[in-house]
């Protein structure tokens, strides 16, 4: 799970020409630690929706990597 999420986050970063992440931890914040803006978050939701068929922002804002993983695990 962690690796598949990491791959999608890195896909977003690579499209912007930014340095890829080596690993994820649950407490990492998508905005502050990963450096995502709203366009990046939107792109991530589209990528995750294609794989897991779940919209991580459907019920409001998700802040951390751990929150995303919890939502994805429910739908795996």
């Amino acid at each position: 799970m962690e690796n598949r999420l990491l791959a999608q986050i890195n896909e977003v970063l690579s499209g912007k020409g930014e340095t890829l992440l080596q690993r994820l931890s649950p407490e990492m914040k998508l905005r502050d630690d990963v450096g995502f803006d709203s366009f990046d978050l939107a792109e991530l939701t589209v990528r995750l929706e294609e794989i897991y068929d779940v919209d991580i922002f459907e019920n409001g804002i998700v802040n951390t990597v751990g929150e995303v993983m919890t939502l994805l695990e429910k739908n795996e």
């Binding site: 709203s38 366009f39 978050l41 939107a42 792109e43 939701t45 589209v46 919209d55 922002f57 459907e58």
Partner: peptide
């Protein structure tokens, strides 16, 4: 594509 964050992606 419709999106909950930006309206569209």
């Amino acid at each position: 594509i419709p999106n909950s964050v930006l309206g569209n992606v």
